[in-house]
Design a protein around this nucleic acid. Sequence first.
DNA 1: CCTTTTCTACGAAAATAATCGTAGAAAAAT
DNA 2: ATTTTTCTACGATTATTTTCGTAGAAAAGG
Lengths: 124, 124
Amino acid sequence: MLPKPTDSELEILQVLWENGPSSVRFVNDQLGERKEVGYTTTLKLLQIMHEKGLVVRNTDARSHIYEAAVQRDVTQRNLLGTFVDNVFSGSAMNLVMQALGNHKASREELDQIKALIEKLENEG
Amino acid sequence: MLPKPTDSELEILQVLWENGPSSVRFVNDQLGERKEVGYTTTLKLLQIMHEKGLVVRNTDARSHIYEAAVQRDVTQRNLLGTFVDNVFSGSAMNLVMQALGNHKASREELDQIKALIEKLENEG
DNA sequence: CCTTTTCTACGAAAATAATCGTAGAAAAAT
DNA sequence: ATTTTTCTACGATTATTTTCGTAGAAAAGG
């Protein structure tokens, strides 16, 4: 089983998920738009993530190209699971209620959710 | 602004939220039901949490009584906020869909959510 | 060519979190 | 009364995460 990405690793994964295979330079530039971060810091993190198996890389060219080795939705699901356990004592419904109640949802979003619920009702 | 509780601190807060003001011994016993943890570890954590302002304590008796200084739902809301940012790029709806789709929700739970949605629709 | 820039690798420091050992006081047990 | 148990305080250690400096090779620029 792959280890859980840390917060910093997650920031990098977001970049890779949204932009596909990328060089260290590119990832670092993307991160740099939100907060200052040293180049070798990003490099080191990507190397660690490579050791962990969170990313794969192509070292043909001098500047290596990194790519996410874990799927976005799978990772989100895993992290969501432990988050629900830690913060909501395992009650996903509790979390949903909290998220819905707090977020200003648009009509379209609410409709989406209603559709999903009906689908679930017809399955179960 | 109070600092965000760490994972271990959160475990302790769960105990305090569910049982009200408690001694170190009681908290430690509760935690001990799920995993082995040294008494002084729990003590130390509670002392740190006290410094941070996450708990208040009564030191009248020899064994001090600790109480959560942060509300459960407020804390959950805060943590949910940063979690949504970190893992779901800020999209709470995305998280809700993921949570709903993945969780085996009971009919009662689904009804609850539908009711909440309708309430939201009538407000917005 | 020679200089400057751009890489990777590696190690280590800094920051944060978690765990525990020991000492000494107070209370409880015998 | 003496021993044993139960506390707190405090410091230190360990583990984990994050950050960065330096060295040396490769590429690019002049």
